[in-house]
Every structure is written in C-alpha cells, then in structure tokens.
Nucleic acid binder design. Structure first.
Lengths: 377, 377
DNA sequence: ATCGCCCGGTCAAAGGTCGC
DNA sequence: GGCGACCTTTGACCGGGCGA
C-alpha cells in the first residue's frame, strides 16, 4: 500500500511521482521547474519550512526538498502532443452554424404566421378550375395547395437570404441554388411539419391546412397528387417519426440539401461545397453527441447516415411533384404564378429573372407583399 | 529470429505487432488509436521525428508511421471480456458483410466478361431505328446503349440473388427491390466504371464501349440522353473522382441503395431496413478507418456523409433516364425488351412477372442465356 | 505437452487541462 | 502566470489461445 503523506510538504499524497511519494502540487511544481529550467534563489537561510501551507513561500527550498525526497529530474519526459479538451468549448464555430440555422428557421416560422394572415385577408388567389370537395373545414382545398406552395417559395427565398453562406455568393449562383432546391425543400418542410400531427395518413401544408391521403385520391384527374402525398407519408414522415428527428437535424438537413454544389448553372462550386460540408460536419457532430447521451438507444447508431438517407426519397418525390404540377398546368387545372414557374418548373426557356431578382434584392425579413401574391394573367 | 528494433520509433522491440516489428508502446498506441477511432491532426509539417524520446510529441505522425511500417488496422481484434475469454462478437459479421459484398461484385465482374462475349457473338440486338454516327470504333452506338442496359439488368439480378439478405426475402419483396433499384444501380455502376477512364467528358458503358458527352448531343431527337450523360459526369463521376472512391465504398453504397425499405410494394420493411443499416454501419466503419490511416487528407473528413450525398443526384438522374427511355420508346426510337420494361419502366399495369420469376428461380451465376437476349416482338 | 508468438487487458505513473 | 485538483495517455507487464 502506498503511503498517504507527501514526503515534501506533508500534504495528502497521490502516489509516487518522479521517485518520491508526493502530492499533486509538488508533482506539478517539480515538473514545471525542471521543464522550464527555472533557477530559484532562497532569500533566507536555505532552510524554509516546506509544509502544506507554506510550500509556496520559497521555491528554492521546495525544489531542494523535492530532490532530497527522491525526485529525479530524468523522470521528467519530453512534452507530449496536445490531449483532448476537458470542457466542451472548442466547437464554438460549429455550434454557431447550428445556432444560425435554427435562428433562420425560427425567423421563417414567425414570418409564416404573418404571411398566412396577410394572404388569407387578400383577394382569393385563384389556383385553378377544380375545387376539392371537402368535409372538414381544416382540410386543404386545391386552392390551399397552390397558396401554400407559393407561400413556401416566398419564405424559402427569405430563409436563403438570411444565410451568410448564401448571401456571399454571386447572384447567378444564388439563383441556381434557389431553383435547384425549391421543390425538395418545400417537400422537406411539409414532411417535417407533418411529423407532429400524429395522424398517419395526413400531411400538413404550410398554411396549416390538412391534406389526408384518401382525400387526395378522390379527385380523379390529378390522382398523381395522391401518389405524392402517399409517398411523403411513407418515405419521409414515417421514417422521420421513427427516427424522432429533431429541429436541429431538420435545419441541418435542409441546409445540406440546399447547398448542392452540383446544381445546374452553379459556377462557384467550391463555396457551395464548403457550406454543405460545414453543415454536414455539424450534423454528424450533433448526431454523435446525441448517441453519447443516450447510449442504449439503438436508433442513435449511424444516425447521421440514416438522416441523409432520407434525401434520395425526398429528391424523387420532389421531382415527381414538379412533373405533376407541370402536367396539371398543361391540362389547365392550376394556374402557375411567375415565382412558381421560375423556381419549381425550371423550364429551359430563359425565364424573366425579374421576380427572383426583386426578391433577392429586398432586405431580409420584409418580402414585398406584391411579389408574394403576384399571379400570372 | 525477430529483429530487435521497433520499426516505428527505434526503441527495443517486443516482437511483431499488427504486422510490424514494434515496441510495446507503439503496439498499445496503435491499438488504442484504432479502437477508439481517434483522429489526430499534426500541428506541424506532417514530418515530425518519431523516435524513442519524441514519439509522444505528435500522435498524428506516430500513427502514420505505424501504418507505413506495416501495421494493419484489421489485425486489431475485438474487445474481449475482462476475464480474457474470446467472445462471439457482432463485429465479425460486419467485416464479413463487406467481404461478402466485394465477393458479389467480383462475381458479377467475371460474369460480365462472359456476358459481353456471349451477346456480341449472338445475333445483333435490334435496339431501335436511329443509329449513332460515330468516328471512333470504340464509341457506343445506340445499339450498345440498349445492349448494355440489358446486360446490366441481367447482372443486377444475379448480383442481388447472390446476397443472402436478399434471398431470405419473400419473392414479392425481392421483385419490389429489383424494380425500385434497377435504374439507380445501373447508373451508379456506369458512373463508378467511368471514374477510371480518366476522360472528363466520356462515360463507360457496361459492355466497355464509350459514350462521350458531345457525341450524345449530336442526335437531335433524343438529346435528353446527352443531358443524362452530362449529369452523370458532373454530379457523379466528378465528385467520385475527387473523393477517390474505392471499390469497398462502391459496393457498400450500392447495397445501401438497393436495400431501400420505402420502395413501393415492399412488405417486410424491417428486414430490408436491417440489411440497409448493416451496410451503412460497415460503410461508416470503413470510412472512419480510412480517415485514421490517412490523416492529412482533408477529403476523409465526413467521408461517409459525402458518399451518401451522391445518392440524391443518383436518384434524380436515374429517374430522368427512365423518363427518357419512356419517351424514346413512345417515339419508337428504341425497342424495349420485357426485362427492361419490367425493371426500368415500372408501368402501373400488372406486368407479367414471368421474366422476373424465371430469373429469380434460376441458380446464381448461371443466368439463362434465353432471358438474357430475349426481345419483345 | 510445452513453448514461443502475438493477441488481449491492466493500472501506476507519466502526461495535459484550465479555473482560480 | 503559476498553482494544483482533476482528467487522459502511456507502456511495462501480465494472461490466454493457437500453431508448431
């Protein structure tokens, strides 16, 4: 058994250090002294007391007593590599990114409330010829679908503008990202919102109206929509629920999706890629941390991978949605405003970039109501 | 006789450890590093001295030198019980999984060679009315495109059948996975094969014919194909090259893609999901190991995430390819055989499951030549 | 059987961290 | 800027399984 008393200062010892039974204080003192080649001089008689309370009074005598107690300077090793931090503080830059994304999301949530109020008080937005027959007052009409898509587009642009990584890009690249990501990000938003509904067969649109799967089936001509709703539920909402996806993961996934470096017409791929990977790193970090907190939970394993694997389905569903809208427009079932045309149905024709430019130019948090409700013809 | 000197730090060695003559220190260091998935960063120039006295100064360089000296991370065994008994570990299964996937891939590669020989010696496979005008003898004709898709489908089924996780499924689920994954997996294969071409604007089809991007543009009527080729290059081949994706990562990604639990008509989602997550775990494991071995390479960071982020693009391209083929068939530009119709153009009509069932029933490694070259009408 | 060899694990004593 | 309570990493030293 190791002795309990430090042979240098009589403090409680923590074992043998450098050849002498000693406390952590004397251990550290000896190491620092040897490492830095300190030369101490006693201002008294070289016989100062070195005890727990007085040991810091005379360094010369303390060091001398260390040697007398048996400490060997050759037991001091060379400096080693830096070790893991004790307190979790080095991730400030990365935490900032997550915080920033969460803030952007909350800003948009607030804006959404006001937009819903605004647009519903304005003249009705004519979205097409076919009307849903609905029983429940909260159920979505075809009109609601068009409205909610439009609103989501406006909010999507505001969201993007609030991200520094986005606003540093050239305007052509900004437009490219917006066009490339609009459909997917709207679908992602609908799916995430629908998680909290608790209904297995209903999605929740951006203006808080509900769209049940069977409901969508009833309209024969555009039963494709039903298919999209069903896929959103089966391929996104359900897996998200099972993963118990949280807000942080949602915003990270959204940003990763948005900063797509291989989107068409993107010039500065490097910047976009860097933004994407920064988000990816944050997401992975966050998932690892979560896994450490609740160990026994099996769903935490490979969590970031599972989240990323939602994206292929999302991509496919968004693409199908775009086609359905195109088809619906072809048959005259829906009217399509300029914003929708520009962002969702990215036709190959050199579209008039006016709408987008106006939206991009206006300051954050204040989307022009004009653009917001503007309708073609 | 064993050498006396540690090949990493020149200390006295205690024998061979993990593949390299080394001391106990380097042995322990390597084991701890691999086990705990540590990721070190050199604070200097990646060329620190690793000698007896300085070996603890830079863990990044020490680990790198361990690898250079021949230490293999797969020599690190599984954790044992404190008692010292070797316990049956789930880890073994994981390594097996990767090996199994690689084996399945190699089996298909061999099969491909024989299939190419077989089909080219058979009567020409009429693929449509329009012929490519090509200068280079090795360039692909439209005929080649049809042929290669067909071949890939045959191999795809054989590949799937060779996977135990697949063969344990009910036949309806097997059919669902095959239908849901065919297009994506063919595109993934084309992209991966094209990495090694070294040409920036050309993809390599399954029968080893080449298809340059501009080449595809020349045919006006189906210039959509050119678009698909361009997207494969920009969104898949190029990123894959930059990541320096290897075979193991390719097969893991392919299996993850294939075991899609949210594919249509899939009943036993749980089994499919388990298979997917097993592959995902293996991929992540493998990426972490790779990151440990080459530290200085920045591309290793978040590697599994970067690989998974190829999948949304892949999904979109595959979907576009399907639409192009549908369109081309509509205009009578290509003939579509039963297999292609069933797997690629998954029409909603209850298709005759004969072809698929025949293929699924025949033993592995011996696809019936009949099915292989069968053409409609 | 018994002897190296090379896996595994352990823990005293090195190291480093960071609020005070 | 040193001190020292508190934490991490190191590596010498074991035990065990396996092939010769």
């Amino acid at each position: 058994m190791v002795e309990e008393i430090c042979h240098i200062c009589n403090d409680k010892s923590t074992g043998k250090h450098y050849g002498a039974i000693s406390c952590d204080g004397c251990k550290g003192f000896f190491r620092r002294s040897i490492r830095k080649r300190y030369h101490y001089t006693c201002r008294f008689e070289q016989n100062c007391d070195v005890t727990r309370n007085k040991r810091n009074a005379c360094r010369a005598c303390r060091l001398q007593k260390c040697v007398k107690a048996g400490m060997k300077s050759n037991a001091i090793q060379n400096e080693r590599d830096a070790i893991g931090k004790r307190k979790k503080t080095p991730e400030e830059g990365k935490e900032d990114l997550i915080d920033q994304l969460v803030a952007a999301e909350q800003m948009c949530q607030q804006l959404r409330s006001s937009v819903i109020k605004n647009t519903s008080s304005l003249a009705p937005y004519d979205c097409g010829k076919v009307k849903w027959n609905y029983e429940d007052a909260r159920s979505a009409t075809l009109d609601d679908i068009g409205k909610s898509i439009h609103q989501q587009l406006v909010l999507f642009i505001e969201w993007a503008k609030s991200l520094p990584q986005f606003s540093f890009l050239a305007q052509v690249d900004q437009a490219a990202l917006l066009k490339g990501g609009a459909a997917s990000i709207i679908v992602l938003g609908v799916a995430y919102r629908s998680i909290h509904l608790g209904m297995d067969d209903t999605i929740c649109l951006a203006n808080d109206t509900l769209l049940p799967k069977e409901h969508a089936t009833q309209v024969g001509d555009i039963n494709h929509f039903s298919c999209v709703v069903g896929r959103i539920l089966a391929e996104l909402v359900n897996p998200m629920r099972r993963l118990d996806m949280d807000l942080v993961e949602y915003v990270a996934l959204k940003a990763i999706l948005f900063f797509n470096p291989v989107v068409r017409e993107c010039n500065d791929q490097t910047s976009v890629e860097n933004a994407r990977f920064a988000c990816l790193r944050s997401l992975q970090r966050r998932c690892t941390d979560k896994a450490i907190v609740n160990q026994e939970d099996d769903s935490q394993d490979c969590r970031s991978g599972k989240l990323l694997l939602l994206l292929p389905s999302l991509q496919a569903i968004a693409q199908q949605l775009v086609e359905d809208v195109q088809l619906a427009r072809l048959f005259g079932l829906v009217n399509v405003d300029s914003l929708m045309e520009e962002l969702i149905l990215n036709d190959l024709k050199p579209s008039d970039p006016q709408i987008l430019q106006t939206s991009l130019a206006s300051p954050v948090n204040t989307p022009s109501v004009k653009a917001e409700v503007e309708v073609e013809e």
